[in-house]
Design a protein around this nucleic acid. Structure first.
Lengths: 129, 129
DNA sequence: CTCCGCTATATCCAAACGGACACAACGGAA
DNA sequence: TTCCGTTGTGTCCGTTTGGATATAGCGGAG
């Protein structure tokens, strides 16, 4: 390591593909959790998010995108659940891919900024006024 | 144009350089406005933001960064005002530079996503079920 | 048929947010 | 000295947000 252990700078990306057609870190994490857990309520629990909040976010996406990203079933095969549609998987995949693609550039610039902060540009040696 | 007039997809970038050291679209726009207008209140007006809100955002930045990004004067030369410090200008410049650097990649991926939405993956030609 | 966990929805209520407004201090201009 | 626009701070209050809770329906498992 160069100095001490840094908390590692992070970045968040929010895409507005059209009016109200928006995906950011929160919805991406939720889609991820739904895919892994197979239900909205379980996804909410893993994200420490209320069912209401999780359902609202998914409902917003389903209504604003051209087709649902998540399909649900009350009761049934395994007492109900939810899963991503093909569109949902692709949207999530594209979002993650873009995050990965941007990561190197962001890291480089963030490091430059952190270097700036470490050196507060103070003590101009010949400041007459 | 290819089809109809698109609202042009946009993206927002939020950088967390450290705990509570965060800059995103809102604060960047505010720094921009302060630099242009020379005061917090005028910046707030141009952004249609209350003085309270503008001041709070600037105060948050000044307290959490290693040094102030904005310096102010009540009364004085031109009845008071505010301007960016050298650090403030550099932080803003880096943020804008990163936005510009990321823009092409984002545009490309966003277009791929929009294409996905335009074709809701429906009407599989040979769907037996 | 009963049971189970989930979906979907409504109601209630506390906390957070944010705008509107008031006000004192500042300090150079006139 | 008076005047001015700004900074900085506080209070009040309506709006929004979001958690907690309740309830109904679903539909396969047992």
């Amino acid at each position: 390591m160069t100095r001490t252990h840094h908390p590692a700078p992070t970045f968040q990306l929010r895409l507005a593909l059209a009016r109200d057609v928006v995906i950011g870190p929160g919805k991406a994490a939720l889609l991820d959790a739904v895919e892994r857990t197979g239900s909205i309520s379980a996804a909410g629990r893993t994200l420490n998010m209320s069912y209401k909040k999780a359902w609202q976010l998914i409902d917003t996406m389903n209504r604003h995108f051209s087709a649902p990203l998540v399909v649900t079933q009350a009761g049934g095969h395994e007492r109900g659940g939810a899963q991503l549609t093909e569109l949902g998987r692709q949207v999530l995949a594209h979002y993650r891919a873009l995050e990965r693609k941007l990561s190197p550039s962001v890291s480089a610039e963030a490091q430059a900024l952190i270097d700036l902060l470490g050196r507060p540009a103070d003590a101009s040696p010949l400041d007459s006024t």
